[in-house]
């Protein structure tokens, strides 16, 4: 496994994924399932939970780092919403990362980004991992 970074990983996100995440996370904010509510508050339509997008970044991160116990710190900024159309295809989120530093005590600092249609939806993403 190369230490140059986390290669781009593409995730498909559909309305069904959001409904499942509502139930699993307990976050039933209607902007994640009701088009009417989402547009009423000025959003382009139903959007993904920020924490769903962060969870996808977490999947890419743990796969790269070797497991949940390799992650020491993990942080993101939700810079833009991820609109999820009511189609079979949904939308796509692309997660990638760049190694910034490997410290003397064996920790790797990595910067992470996630994009949707080429625009950053997660910015200032950072993780510290102890690679296995």
């Amino acid at each position: 496994m190369s230490d140059t970074g986390l290669p781009p990983h593409t995730f498909t996100v559909t309305r069904a994924d959001l409904v499942r995440y509502c139930g699993a996370s307990g976050d039933f904010n209607p902007i994640h399932w009701s088009e009417r509510t989402a547009t009423d508050v000025g959003l382009p339509g139903v959007i993904a939970h920020g924490m769903y997008t962060m969870a996808l970044a977490g999947r890419a991160l743990t796969a790269w780092a070797g497991g949940s116990d390799a992650v020491v710190e993990f942080s993101v900024r939700f810079s833009r919403p991820v609109p999820v159309p009511d189609t079979d295809e949904g939308t796509e989120v692309v997660v990638s990362g760049t190694v910034k530093e490997v410290t003397e005590d064996g920790l790797t600092k990595i910067s992470l980004t996630a994009t949707c249609h080429g625009e950053k939806v997660l910015s200032l993403g950072q993780a510290i991992v102890r690679k296995r």
């Binding site: 994924d17 995440y21 769903y52 969870a55 977490g58 743990t62 949940s68 116990d69």
Partner: peptide, 28 residues
């Protein structure tokens, strides 16, 4: 719900082999 299918999230035996006390949670 987040599509994490690795066995340590689902199978206690696989989790123990990976060094966890039981099935382990994803970071978020």
């Amino acid at each position: 719900a987040i599509g994490a299918e690795d066995p340590e999230y689902h199978d206690p035996e696989a989790a123990r082999r990976a060094g966890y006390a039981d099935v382990v949670a994803p970071p978020t």
